[in-house]
């Protein structure tokens, strides 16, 4: 399936907040609590439709530990959207948001759309950060906010798609220069004279290549 636009996203936040699980829930519609620890960066991709147009989200899932911050900074460049994730059951992860946000603002382009996500909303009984606190932080810093559960899939689609809608609106308003790839937006092959097609179909559309027969 060929796309009209490709948006680059980055998922950031403390270790263990559920970044990889959010990605997997979004790309594969499944929850896998036990997965390999992310070292460096992992990739996922999914096609969505906005305003009747096919938009491909290319999502960079990063490692959360403090020690990897300097590496993670290199991944911000050219991202159109960022999902900044904390865990509603661990206040520490909420307290670190300011540092993450500073990093993101400093190393990305100024138009990057940032979505604040309070993950693990299914663990209401262990809640340590009130919903209102997340909302207040988002309001104060001009971010979109949502609480999600990668486990039950609640709001996961919405989180990724609403971010894309915001980016799309910015394109419509002319805020993003779509001809500059440093903005994290690429025009799809169907916009080039070579016409539609794409290396389509079958297993090729998935998140990553590969797979042994």
């Amino acid at each position: 399936m060929s796309y009209a636009y490709l948006f680059k996203y980055i998922i950031i936040g403390d270790t263990g907040v559920g970044k990889s699980c959010l990605l997997l829930q979004f790309t594969d519609k499944r929850f896998q609590p036990v997965h390999d620890l992310t070292i460096g960066v992992e990739f996922g991709a999914r096609m969505i439709t906005i305003d009747g147009k096919q938009v491909k989200l290319q999502i960079w899932d990063t490692a959360g530990q403090e020690a990897f911050r300097s590496i993670t900074r290199s991944y911000y460049r050219g991202a159109a959207g960022a999902l900044l994730v904390y865990d509603i059951t661990r206040r520490d992860t909420f307290n670190h948001l300011t540092t993450w946000l500073e990093d993101a603002r400093q190393h990305s382009n100024s138009n990057m759309v940032i979505m604040l996500i309070g993950n693990k909303s299914d663990l209401e009984s262990r809640r340590d950060v009130k919903r209102e606190e997340g909302e207040a932080f988002a309001r104060e810093h001009g971010l979109i906010f949502m609480e999600t559960s990668a486990k039950t899939a609640a709001n996961v689609e919405e989180a990724f798609i609403n971010t894309a809608k915001e980016i799309y609106e910015k394109i419509q308003e002319g805020v993003f220069d779509i001809n500059n790839e440093a903005n994290g937006i690429k025009l799809g092959p169907q916009h080039s004279p070579a016409a539609a097609g794409g290396m389509a179909a079958g297993g090729l559309g998935g998140s990553q290549g590969g797979g042994c027969c």
């Binding site: 092959p189 097609g197 794409g198 290396m199 389509a200 179909a201 079958g202 297993g203 090729l204 998935g206 797979g211 027969c213």
Partner: peptide, 23 residues
């Protein structure tokens, strides 16, 4: 040739347009 992993929804056959391949 390209059997998908069990449980995956990928079809057993797929086509590739070589004109649209990079390499």
């Amino acid at each position: 040739m390209a059997r998908p992993p069990p449980g995956s929804e990928a079809p057993e056959m797929f086509t590739v347009d070589l004109g649209q391949a990079r390499s």
